[in-house]
Design a protein around this nucleic acid. Structure first.
Lengths: 105, 105
DNA sequence: AAACAATACTTCGTGATATGATGTATTACG
DNA sequence: CGTAATACATCATATCACGAAGTATTGTTT
């Protein structure tokens, strides 16, 4: 899939992946990959960015002797998802523009 | 509208704007703006990029004492639009993922 | 005629960002 | 015992949208 097309979707997908339950990097990746291809470096970059912009909070916990960073969505994060859905109307109208066929000629 | 969300759409919109009839920068901008906001610098950057990648060809013509660069879509350009439409299915499935509500909990 | 808006295109620098490559470390499996 | 799976981090790179600023002509308004 075209990289440019993915750009507006990646952040939101990550947020959605932690929306109902706190999750951690490795699991988020597995949850999201069936829908949108994403590399590890991309995911961790996104998680860092979302943390810095207050869309999620992080908590480190031990699990089977290994450390895990659990991500929890914030109100801003939820709002971000809602905002995305609103903007989608605009996206669809652009899609209409792209797909509309000229009747004349 | 979110810049990231626009990234995958801008190129295709420009191609669509010249799909049925050759056009020039200033006019393309006017045609596209009702659907997607785009600055002059962005448009001309895109036109240059599309030319370099063989999606369109350029011809300079005089019009009212002023020079205009007319852009003509190529087969590659048309294929690019078709490819976009195909990829849209994937985009919609991602959108489904984002909007689906959890029934449980 | 002077001023300003509209037409038409160009160039530069900047900031955002996705990704491959590479690295570290532990646990589970066969 | 080696390999895969789990888990996260960092760096360099390339792409790209955009604002700012510029050049130049034509049309309109005062």
């Amino acid at each position: 899939m075209d990289i440019q097309l993915k750009r507006g979707l990646l952040d939101v997908c990550v947020l959605v992946a932690i929306k109902n339950e706190d999750s951690y990097g490795y699991r988020i990746l597995k949850d999201v990959k069936p829908y949108i291809e994403m590399s590890e470096s991309t995911l961790y970059t996104i998680l860092k960015r979302l943390e810095l912009s207050g869309m999620l909070t992080v908590r480190t916990a031990e699990h089977g002797g290994r450390l895990r960073k659990y991500y929890h969505i914030t109100k801003s994060g939820l709002k971000r998802i809602e905002n995305f859905k609103e903007e989608w109307r605009e996206v669809m109208s652009i899609y209409q523009f792209v797909t509309k066929e000229e009747k004349d000629k």
